[in-house]
Computed example of a mutant assay.
Amino acid sequence: MSYAGFLAALRAEGLTVVEVKTNGKSPASHNRNSKGPFGPVHGVLLHHTVTKGSANTVETCRKGYEGLPGPLCHGVITKDGRVHVVGYGRANHAGLGDDDVLQAVINEKPIPADNEANTDGNRHFYGFECENLGDNKDPWPAAQVDAMVRAATALLRAHGWNKDGKEAISVIAHAEWQPGKVDPRGPGYPGHAGIRARVAERLKHPASWSADAPSKPSTPQTPPKEDGMPSAKEIAEAVMAYKIDDPRTSGTKYVEVKDVLWWAGADSAQANTKVKDLEKQVKNLTDLVTQLTKTKEK
């Protein structure tokens, strides 16, 4: 995947991406490629930083520190949910890990316990360092966890990993890769399996999907009629067919309600016609009187 494709995948998943330059240059050229290969890439590795403060965290991951030069990951996910891209290519984040774990990721099979450190992880994994003290007390904000899920999903989606819709094996925690590591951990972190479950759910939807988005309202359905209860239509038909005394014959005949209503409407229409005829006659007489008056004045 190209650097441009990497950024596009993250942004398509709804993430706010910040590119952090080194010596005025794009993160695309900031890497450890001179120290070893990058690729083939098979998955995403999540870490916690054991740092405090977003600016300090991003800068540490960009430049590294004595004995471990940067970049220390590809993206830093701060507590506000933003992804700060600090490098692209080989990065010092995964270190040596278990070859059985890597094989499980490649085969998309359940992750075994890590008990060896014999395989170069920097070559095979994208890395996201996530701002947290790592003391198992510092809480993980929901926005940050959501960004972790989206970042992992973006790359799984772009590579076509875990298409079967089951557990998203292609995203693992540092604790599952290298013996002795414990990250990520802490209050609010849903657990490694929990992260994978959320990623798997996102993969079932378009990249623009949000778990908290309101669902499309379903088409209203007519509630079923209770046993023994007539419908509104049946009641109306029964009323219209009900027979009452014929008002024209002083009760000597019976007629249906609908006929009486029709007569009332017909009588009303006939009355309206007569009124209009009378109005026309009055107007004609008025015009005639006016004309006669003018003739007399002359």
Rank of each mutant, 00 (worst) to 15 (best):
K216N: 09
D259E: 11
R202G: 06
D277E: 14
A213G: 06
Q221K: 05
Q221I: 15
K233N: 06
K233F: 07
Y189N: 03
D267G: 05
R202M: 00
Y242D: 11
T286P: 05
V260L: 12
W263V: 12
K204H: 04
L278D: 09
K258V: 12
S268C: 14
D245R: 13
V257F: 02
W263Q: 08
P190G: 05
L278K: 12
I195M: 04
T252Y: 11
A241R: 09
W209Q: 00
T273D: 13
L203F: 00
Q270C: 02
P247F: 01
A241T: 09
N272W: 15
H205D: 05
T222V: 13
G251I: 06
P223Y: 09
G191H: 02
S268T: 14
T249K: 10
E234S: 04
P187K: 07
W209F: 03
V260A: 09
Y189T: 02
D246H: 01
K253P: 05
E226T: 13
A200G: 02
N272C: 12
S268E: 15
W209P: 05
E279W: 10
T286G: 08
E226K: 10
W263S: 09
A200H: 03
T222A: 15
E234R: 03
L261A: 13
K216Q: 11
D259A: 08
G265F: 15
A271T: 12
Y189W: 10
W209R: 01
P187H: 04
K280R: 13
K274W: 12
T286N: 14
K233E: 03
R196G: 11
P187N: 02
K283I: 07
A238L: 01
S231N: 05
P217Q: 09
A236S: 15
A211R: 01
M229C: 11
E234L: 05
A236V: 11
P190K: 03
V257Q: 03
Q270M: 15
Y254G: 10
T222L: 13
R196S: 09
R196Y: 10
K283H: 08
Y189M: 00
A266V: 13
Q270A: 12
T219V: 12
A200V: 07
A213K: 03
K276E: 13
A200D: 03
P247V: 12
A264Y: 13
A200L: 07
A213N: 06
K204A: 00
A197I: 07
I235W: 02
V255H: 02
P224N: 07
V199M: 08
L285P: 04
A241D: 04
A236R: 15
K233T: 10
L203C: 02
H192T: 13
K225Y: 07
M240P: 01
R202I: 07
P224R: 14
S218F: 10
P217N: 06
H192A: 14
R198V: 01
Y189E: 04
W209Y: 05
S215V: 14
V239H: 11
G194A: 02
A193C: 10
D267S: 08
P217G: 14
G186W: 04
